[in-house]
Design a protein around this nucleic acid. Structure first.
Lengths: 352, 352
DNA sequence: CTGTTAGCGCTTTCAG
DNA sequence: CTGAAAGCGCTAACAG
């Protein structure tokens, strides 16, 4: 079918080894010979067979990027940051797991089959003991086989009995801190009954952000009403809409709603408008992530900025091995509170 | 390092061929033998080497998806549609070209190296004779080598002298028709001076949408003022903002602005607000694509719906070969005008 | 500087 | 039903 190295060698009148050398440029070759080989390559439209090369050299030029949802800019931003670091040498492949543990494992297998040079898992991890163990084991195995593993936006892997410490690097987000700062902002504005739209259950991100939120409440002597002020969504817009509706119906007294991501916050804004409530005059709304569109919302969304693209770049260079591993294999990226127009003091000031 | 087929064979006390057979399940093997082999696989934590397999069987389980911008939901939606069709057997890899011709070619090379089973190019193509020729040639070459090629959201490849018709399937969008319908909607509302925010120059999508827009103008005896009503952006929000600013400054009389995608339309809305203009009372605004957030904008955006996810699914099954090629290798997906709150009759009705 | 010689790990006839 | 053997296309010592 396609031309092979041998074909090129024959046509150039040299040995296969020589062709390989000029192609890889890692060995001295006479200028005139190189010339001849290059011409043969052109003539034959030769393109090296990646599989044969990978097999012989036991190297791979695949880097896998696992994301929960490609259509969500949160992941797109991270992924494009990573991909920018892989240059033209590695094929950075984005795998969409849809947040399904099953699919996550499947992709990991596929990447393991290809002996991927690296893999980065992005976003919150599913918190299910069995799955966590399965992923951890497989990741350790891959790392042991030489695959560079980095986690971006999820907590470090739990230690595994019997497994040596392996080069699994983590770029974690300070979800707790960010969430806490956000809720504290609302409290300082005077809000006392604050609704919370959490992410999907059993996700690290969901838990951490919720913990930050509750820590802020507790620090100010506020409760969350036995969880009646918390509703779970699944990070997409319509779930934010539904959750906000449920919240205003269930707890009419709330003066603010914190959504655990911007997308749901926007859905919540839409729900409030539909319910005839003004943002922020009747109810303040805040999000998390600071995706590009948050600035455009009306009113502009108060949120917690996560340097997604930068975190992607960091993870990308880590998985490519172009920057040294941070001490302890863990780098935490901070968050920044972005106060905008969607939050304001409650209409009725709280009793002093 | 990792266990090999031979290791498994030894441990199971069978030949490598037998192991291969039970693994691929494409040949009769005694139940008890299979059992033994499977246990050995487990014990050794064996994972087939994809490269060796691909080399020996000359098959690949990679499917490439080229997108201009992963962080843009337009592509995310298409990509997730495609990926949903590749199941757990093929590794659907998303490659981010950033709209760079150079990078597009690089990824194509990488995929060609891996002898990808298929590749789908999404979104508008760069219109530059040289680049078009290069891409077309390479695609033909890949198709000739057995890679299934599908174009999603871009026009069919130009015929190439000396190359037989190859199985390059196209799922095209009716950008012209959609754009025309949109502008006609505005005209029917009474608008006469309509600004247009086009996409990047030299892109098929840009050209087609612009052509549709102008066709509508012409059909109603309207001109575009020697192009003074048209500004180019690059499909992202800030360029929409800048373009709208330029438009209101340059042509104060406009009563409507059509942006060639939703993202820029939202940027334009923000610009108008910043300029103290109301949408749609002072100026109507319309977009294109109908991305999820368009419904959430305030006011909700009038736009042209493109069944992105569905087109992705279609392209995915085409590249997997699970559905027959449409007649002529071309399937066009239609558009639907979504009239919402961002467009209204101009404040000052035009002179009858 | 260049050619020879072994494989890399798997699939696939071809014989049992 | 199972094994032996011959590659798939390339790289990497090892000799010249």
């Amino acid at each position: 079918m396609a031309a092979t190295l041998a074909d090129v060698a024959t046509r150039a009148g040299v040995s296969a080894a020589t062709v390989s050398r000029v192609l890889n440029g890692n060995y001295p070759v006479a200028a005139t010979t190189r010339e001849r080989v290059l011409r043969a390559v052109q003539d034959l439209e030769y393109v090296v067979n990646g599989h044969a090369r990978a097999l012989a050299a036991s190297t791979s030029d695949l880097v896998g990027i696992l994301v929960n949802d490609v259509a969500d800019p949160f992941f797109g931003l991270i992924a494009s940051g990573i991909q920018g670091q892989t240059g033209g040498e590695k094929l950075a492949v984005i795998c969409n797991t849809n947040g399904s543990p099953q699919s996550e494992l499947t992709y990991l297998t596929l990447l393991q089959r290809q002996r991927a040079a690296g893999v980065v898992l992005t976003g919150g991890a599913v918190e299910e003991p069995e799955h966590t163990r399965a992923v951890t084991e497989r990741l350790h195995r891959m790392a042991a086989a030489g695959t560079r593993v980095v986690l971006c936006g999820r907590p470090p892997l739990p230690g595994l009995a019997g497994l040596a410490d392996l080069p699994v690097t983590t770029v974690a987000f300070d979800n707790r801190g960010g969430a806490r700062a956000l809720t504290e902002h609302l409290i300082s504005l005077g809000h006392r009954r604050i609704g919370y739209i959490a992410g999907p259950v059993n996700r690290t991100t969901t838990r951490h952000r919720l913990e930050g939120h509750r820590a802020a409440l507790r620090a100010h002597g506020l409760g969350d009403d036995d969880g009646r002020l918390t509703v779970h969504g699944d990070y997409d817009r319509s779930s934010g809409y539904d959750a906000a509706m449920a919240l205003v119906r269930r707890a009419p007294g709330i003066t603010a709603i914190v959504a655990s991501n911007d997308t749901m916050a926007l859905g919540a804004c839409a729900a409030l408008r539909a319910a005839g409530l003004d943002v922020p005059d009747d109810v303040s709304i805040a999000g998390f992530d600071d995706l590009p569109f948050s600035l455009d919302a009306v009113p502009a969304l108060t949120t917690v900025r996560l340097p997604l693209h930068q975190a992607g770049i960091r993870s990308g260079s880590l998985v490519m091995g172009t920057v040294p591993t941070p001490p302890g294999g863990l780098a935490t990226v901070g968050t920044e509170l972005m106060v905008r127009a969607s939050t304001a003091p409650p209409r009725t000031p709280p009793p002093a």
